[in-house]
Simulated assay, not measured.
Amino acid sequence: MYDIEKYYNARSVSEAAMLLMEHPEARIISGGSDVLIKIREGKMAGTSLVSIRDIEELKGIERKENGDIYIGAGTVFSHITANSVIRKYIPVLGEAVDQVGGPQIRNIGTIGGNICNGAVSADSVPTVFSYNSLLHIANAEGGRTVPVREFYLGPGRVDLHPGEVLTHVVIPRAEYEGYHGHYIKYSMRNAMDIATLSCSVVSKVNVSEKILEDVRITFGVAAPVPYRCTETETLLKGRKLDTSLYQELEESIRNEIHPRDSWRASKAFRLQIGGEIARRALIRTVELAEAELGGENA
């Protein structure tokens, strides 16, 4: 049984914002893959819900004339993976969300829910961080835009005020054009498991000169919130792609991330894995850049 106090079905973003202002104790629900589980477990028993599932303006993906990519917060994972814009310009995001749960979850779970629940194990979030994404949030005053790096306030806490609804994840053209990305999720099982540790690397490579022009490295489950390794990024930018760079990458990552001990894995194990998956992810992004140049020259 689901102990739900009241259920409101919003038909527009403005109606959802109004309902949330009128009922500040209510929670937003779309796919329900997180909220309904918590209600059934008794953690949110007696909660009122505002459904945004039927709001069409929250669904879909569009590349604007200026090249910015808008992803509706209500877009389910399977639609992100299959979308032609994602596959052409930021395929790493589709690959990342394709590792969420199983097919049932990927057909109901949304990127907005994945971001707003504040879980550091969320598969979409490291890549959203590495692309310096912006979050468009609607409210009664018209709305605001928040860099995703400022959205996470602590474990399970995000910067979403009463009466607010996340409407779009925006990836600016300048943040993805010329970049390649790769996401690695380490978990105890190959499927249907949350991440023990995850890492998304996005890089821009000068293939002919073998120079790492830019790199962004974001971890999940390595700190209380999604963690950008800015110290390591600074260390690597502008460097020659050689064995010493990858060795320094591993060492720097292990000094920078702050995982914890848990029943899933020890801190020491996560530190060891962290350096390894960051190295593998960067190597893969370089391979993708080389393959693209090879295809252009063919």
Rank of each mutant, 00 (worst) to 15 (best):
M1S: 09
M1T: 03
D3C: 02
K6P: 01
Y8A: 00
N9K: 14
S12F: 12
S14L: 05
L19R: 09
H23D: 15
A26V: 12
A26T: 13
S30T: 06
G32N: 12
V35G: 08
K38G: 00
K38M: 11
I39H: 10
M44P: 00
A45Q: 13
D54V: 03
I55D: 08
N66Y: 05
G67A: 07
I71G: 10
A73K: 10
G74S: 13
I80H: 14
N83L: 08
S84P: 12
V85R: 06
I86W: 04
V97D: 11
D98G: 12
G101V: 12
P103M: 08
Q104E: 08
R106L: 10
R106S: 11
I108A: 01
N114L: 05
S124N: 07
S133G: 03
N139G: 10
A140I: 12
T145G: 00
R149D: 10
G156N: 06
R157W: 11
P162V: 14
P162L: 06
V170Q: 04
P172I: 07
E177N: 04
H182I: 05
H182T: 07
H182W: 13
Y183E: 11
D193V: 03
S200P: 00
N206D: 15
E213D: 13
E213P: 02
R216H: 15
A222M: 04
A222P: 02
P224S: 07
R228W: 03
C229N: 09
E231P: 00
T232E: 07
T234R: 15
L235S: 14
L236H: 14
K240Q: 12
D242R: 11
T243P: 00
Y246S: 06
E251M: 09
E251I: 13
S252Q: 09
I257T: 04
D261F: 12
D261N: 15
S266F: 08
R270Y: 07
Q272L: 05
I273P: 01
G274S: 02
A278Q: 08
R279Y: 05
R280W: 07
L282H: 13
I283M: 12
L288W: 01
L288V: 04
E292F: 12
E292L: 11
G294K: 13
